[in-house]
Amino acid sequence: MGLLTILKKMKHKEREMRLLMLGLDNAGKTTILKKFNGEDVSTISPTLGFNIKTLEHRGFKLNIWDVGGQKPLRSYWRNYFESTDGLVWVVDSADRLRLDDCRKELNALLLEERLAGATLLVFANKQDLPGALSKDGIREVLALDDIKTHHWCIVGCSAVTGENLLSGVDWLLDDIAARIFTTD
């Protein structure tokens, strides 16, 4: 029995997952987190530092890290990468101007070795806005089909209405669970 197996079994006991929420500023990371947790989303401020939420969902204990985008803290992002099971990349679908930036940031992130094992969920957020690019448009612009290094899925959602948040997170949990919790 290798160390990895032992670690897997330890995790299995707690059924704990660590999710990291990243994306450009104003993508709606904090709003998604709060909406998912059933909190008020009308008074959210730009995130200074980060929010950590631990919540129970489908018998899993989820540790969700929502990291703000401010520059002095970006160099610390790497510290959050270690032992991340799932990466949630949030995209502001209405912000067409910065989709190219968004693609670059995501590509750089996926090259990060410490995120190599993580499952990627892309939330094409703000689908409730009339100017929003569709899920398939985002998929094309971000060149998601070129990603071969991670399991990934894109879900169109709206953090304000809560639409599709659950189905996205459920896919993420299923994919992670199949990978890290040994079936014994």
Partner: peptide
């Protein structure tokens, strides 16, 4: 077409 357009200014 929207597919290949990275920055589509039509809706902006």
């Amino acid at each position: 077409s929207v597919g290949t357009v990275v920055v589509d200014a039509a809706d902006q």
